[in-house]
């Protein structure tokens, strides 16, 4: 029905039914001879009757290897994009998150009293080292 339509390009263009390809000169004339040669080669070679399992699987193995390479390359690229400083900053940022907003100087407070306790002797020694006038000690 559709093939009889007046505007049907597939029905009207007669050249479309012909194959628009040539073949090498003498191809069909020599085909039977070439076929004999191929058949003798295939039957003559007893070695490769069955394709080895590895050859059957190799396209799939190649695909799996390709995905593994892409995943490894992607991971290495991500690690190279993030420099180490940024990683340390993550660590310090985590500490910053712990500092109360109302007391920002708390960053500088030490809560380890045992180590930070300074004796009077340590203080005097420091002041002497610093060149502080001894009279100032008495005034205090």
């Amino acid at each position: 029905m559709m093939e009889n339509s007046g505007k049907d390009i597939l029905a009207n263009a007669k050249e479309l039914k012909q194959m628009p390809y040539s073949t090498p000169a003498g191809y069909f004339e020599n085909f039977a001879v070439d076929l004999r040669k191929t058949e003798r080669q295939k039957h003559g070679s007893k070695v490769c009757l069955e394709m080895p399992v590895f050859r059957k699987l190799s396209p799939y193995l190649a695909m799996a290897a390709m995905f593994a390479v892409i995943a490894a390359a992607g991971t290495a690229l991500m690690r190279s994009i993030l420099p180490q400083d940024d990683l340390q900053e993550y660590g310090s940022m985590a500490y910053i998150d712990l500092i109360p907003v109302t007391e920002p100087d708390a960053l500088y407070y030490s809560y380890n009293y045992e180590f930070d306790e300074i004796s009077d002797d340590d203080l005097i020694e420091y002041l002497i080292y610093d060149g502080t006038d001894l009279e100032l000690f008495n005034n205090e």
């Binding site: 050249e15 012909q18 628009p20 040539s22």
Partner: peptide, 15 residues
Amino acid sequence: EDVYFNGNELQRELH
């Protein structure tokens, strides 16, 4: 790219 193609554009587009 077929070197044996000897048709016109309409035939090429059909295939």
